[in-house]
Design a binder for these strands. Structure first.
Length: 140
DNA sequence: CACCCGGCGGCTG
DNA sequence: CCAGCCGCCGGGT
């Protein structure tokens, strides 16, 4: 409850600050940052949608990560399959082709599924502690 | 401008 | 753990 109020407060604050709305800066580069962030996920690790957004410098844009991924044609350099949701699950419907492909890729990299989920404490990237430090202290 | 809908995330019951 | 609900924010109608 408190958290929702906090989010609402943040939203109102954001509105007030950005009321000018000047440019609307077409976020084509947002997609580029998201792709770059995904490319950084190490082999054998996974990152959540929200995590990718954070690494890309776009906090709270988890859904945008999903949108970009959905619209981005699979290319060989992009480890799209290392992006899963915050519950440690693959976000495609169970039984779909996409689900099967993604899971196979991950298992091929040695990632272990228990009850249909990945243990983020073990396979999550970046490590939670590092992420917090960077959020608070900045990189370096 | 008003809705509607997501490869999401947090919290609650 | 699961189901819902809600908040967020881009994109499409």
């Amino acid at each position: 409850m408190a958290s929702r109020n906090k989010q609402k407060a943040r939203k109102n604050a954001t509105r007030k600050i950005s009321k000018k709305k000047t440019a609307t800066v077409a976020p084509a580069n947002d997609a580029a940052r998201i792709i770059a962030a995904i490319k950084r996920i190490p082999r054998g690790k996974v990152c959540t949608y929200g995590g990718v957004a954070d690494v890309a410098g776009l906090p709270r844009r988890a859904r945008l990560v999903g949108t970009v991924l959905r619209q981005t044609p699979a290319s060989r350099g992009l480890p799209w399959f290392r992006v899963i949701n915050a519950s440690g699950r693959i976000s495609f419907p169970l039984g779909s082709d996409g689900y099967a492909r993604q899971r196979k890729h991950l298992e091929n990299e040695g990632i272990d599924f228990v009850g249909g989920r990945v243990d983020l404490d073990r396979y999550g990237w970046p490590p939670r502690e590092k992420l917090l430090d960077e959020l608070v202290w900045g990189p370096g």
